[in-house]
Computed example of a mutant assay.
Amino acid sequence: MRIRILWPAGQATATLATTPTTEALLAELPISSTAETWGEEVYVGTPVSVPREGTARQVVEPGTVAFWTDGDSLALPYGPTPISRDGECRLAAPCNVLGLLDGDARVLRTVRSGDPVRVERA
């Protein structure tokens, strides 16, 4: 399953695994929201509310597509956050891992807090 994430300065696609959270997200697409940034991570609010899955992780690779259950948001890290150690991508809390961005995750550097974001099926 693939999604497209669009914002004023760019776009990215991602390939998602089949998980309960992915299924809940796909059922709500398309989503229009506002971006928030935290270090080198982009958050996109969604209308999805799901529990944390047993495979949730806090430290992930750049380009991971995750779902922050505490904030009902997609979490898209592309580098260190304020709580990272040694350059890792450390999310605010363990998040459900959905998949990976296709290509270079650093494209997310062009996302600014307050940017309108659309998430749709690719």
Rank of each mutant, 00 (worst) to 15 (best):
D115G: 10
T22E: 03
V44A: 13
R2L: 03
P80K: 01
R2E: 11
C95H: 02
V48D: 08
V117S: 03
T34I: 10
I3C: 09
I31L: 06
T37R: 15
V44C: 13
W68H: 11
R85V: 15
P47C: 02
E41L: 09
T34A: 05
L6S: 09
A17D: 15
Q58H: 07
A17C: 07
R112M: 09
V119W: 05
A92H: 12
P80F: 03
T19G: 02
T110R: 11
I3E: 00
P47K: 02
G87L: 00
G114Y: 06
P30H: 00
G87K: 00
P30S: 06
A24G: 02
R2N: 12
V50S: 04
D115Y: 03
L29T: 01
L74Y: 09
V119A: 10
P20A: 08
A92C: 13
A66T: 04
E41C: 05
T34F: 01
T69V: 14
L100R: 15
P116Q: 12
G71I: 01
T69E: 09
W7L: 04
V111T: 10
V119L: 01
W68A: 08
G10A: 04
D72P: 07
G87H: 04
T13P: 07
R90Q: 14
E120V: 07
G71V: 03
T34V: 15
S49Q: 15
V59E: 15
L6V: 13
N96E: 04
T18E: 15
G71S: 06
Q11F: 02
T37K: 14
E28A: 12
M1W: 11
R118A: 12
G39A: 01
S32L: 09
D86W: 05
C89Y: 03
L101E: 00
F67G: 00
E120T: 01
R90C: 06
A75K: 04
P116K: 11
P94A: 08
D115A: 06
P62F: 10
T81W: 05
P20Q: 06
A122T: 13
G87T: 10
S84K: 09
W38F: 05
E40M: 10
E23Y: 07
T13Y: 02
P8C: 02
T34S: 11
A105K: 09
G45H: 03
R109G: 12
V44S: 12
T22W: 10
R109A: 15
G63L: 00
G114R: 08
V60A: 06
Q58L: 02
Q11E: 14
